[in-house]
Nucleic acid binder design. Structure first.
Lengths: 223, 223
DNA sequence: AGTTGTTTGAAACATACGTTTGACAGGTAG
DNA sequence: CTACCTGTCAAACGTATGTTTCAAACAACT
């Protein structure tokens, strides 16, 4: 075969190492030696380390983006006319993520962790790449959120969406470690699906909390 | 003065650059040139780059830790006997953070961003340092959380605390960027204090959401 | 002043990084 | 067979990093 599996070996190794150690802390030499390929292969097949990072994200984000669009289509059709509820919208998102075809058990964890890193590590090129590549499903999700929370002001909604993103990205990005700790501390084994099932009500409740400024204004710091 | 201000110049520069770019992405040469000191000064005064990172955290985390302990003391005394509520506990934390003596306007932002990075960037040495240095106030906070949410199972509480940490750390770690976006998009200027005031009700509501494992269709209620 | 211990300074060190090079193998087509 | 494209390989390149060195400057004290 002309296109050997070198490209996939590199992507597999890179995705695991990036998830474990972050982008700057993972060298091309680590990746290529884990993949069992020559160092020059990365620059030959991808052009640069940044392009490899983009390729790692594109490989799982593009199918996920398609799955998500279809989930939103289904959801809006089921609601015919009426805007979907917040809970429905969140579930469409999380179930799309959890149901993505996984290469193995750790697939979903790596997926999550990478998403967390993408938001967290201030890699300018990555953010730019993701924004202009996946702006459509992201924008659609935002629109659904807006329609599901008409009671919120734009500013309130903005901040609460950030809080949601944070809780999600952070939990995802350390989901493995958190599950391990839980196993050791309380002797409870947890699946990623259960974790997500716990996350959604938390987010929905936070998103729909009573007016935050009411509390803040009525109690202006007792300095 | 024997001990010149070299140490403080380095800490000032390092704290700003770390907050802006992360740890790995900030070189000692950037720090020393911003501080206007010789490159060797870092290794002379601190020993290593990692030790400098620890010193940056210790400089604001130690006073914060003390302030927090006193805030908890006050709180428990005011409640004499009864365990403080979740809202009271969270406010004791956030108000201690916001009221820390700041060197300048950006002080609180940098403080927040660094805390976010500490959780986010998987620097093993940093996590170890923070754990063994500030385990006491952290443990006390966890104990207060437990007493404030007796209705939760240990597992539920564990996950929800992670969600809270995530929303907080993430928002903190990009608080500057998020405030800028809000300014540009909606023309609204926000202080860090307002941001925190919005965060607390979100966290409290999520923390007290109805049982996550039962299927909620819509309508999550808040306490 | 002279001595001692501390702090700075310019330069070098060893190492690791991303990237490039050029030689070489394998298959395909003319 | 020759010519050619594609992919692999070992080696090197240039640069940036954290750290070390050692002499000079400084401060404090007798």
């Amino acid at each position: 075969m002309a296109q050997s599996d070198t490209v996939d070996r590199i992507l597999d190794a890179a995705e695991v190492l990036f998830a474990e150690r972050g982008f700057s802390e993972t060298s091309l030499r680590m990746i290529t030696s884990k993949a069992g390929v020559n160092l020059a292969a990365v620059n030959y097949h991808f052009g640069s380390k940044n392009a490899l990072i983009h390729a790692v994200f594109a490989r799982f984000l593009t199918p996920f983006s398609d799955t998500l669009e279809r989930a939103f289509d289904d959801l809006e059709q089921r609601c015919n006319g009426k805007p979907p509820t917040l809970d429905q919208t969140l579930r469409a998102l999380t179930e799309s993520a959890v149901r993505m075809p996984q290469r193995n058990d750790r697939g979903i964890s790596i997926f999550m962790r990478l998403l967390g890193l993408a938001y967290t590590q201030s890699q300018g090129h990555l953010r730019k790449f993701l924004e202009q590549e996946y702006s459509q499903p992201f924008g659609r999700f935002m629109r659904l959120l807006k329609e599901a929370t008409p009671q919120l002001t734009a500013v309130d909604r903005y901040w609460r969406i950030q809080f949601m993103l944070g809780a999600t990205a952070f939990t995802m990005s350390s989901s493995d470690a958190l599950r391990d700790i839980l196993q050791n501390k309380l002797g409870v084994a947890t699946t990623v699906q259960e974790m997500v099932a716990r996350l959604v009500p938390f987010l929905a409740a936070g998103m729909q909390a009573t007016d935050p400024m009411q509390l803040a204004v009525s109690k202006p710091s007792v300095a």
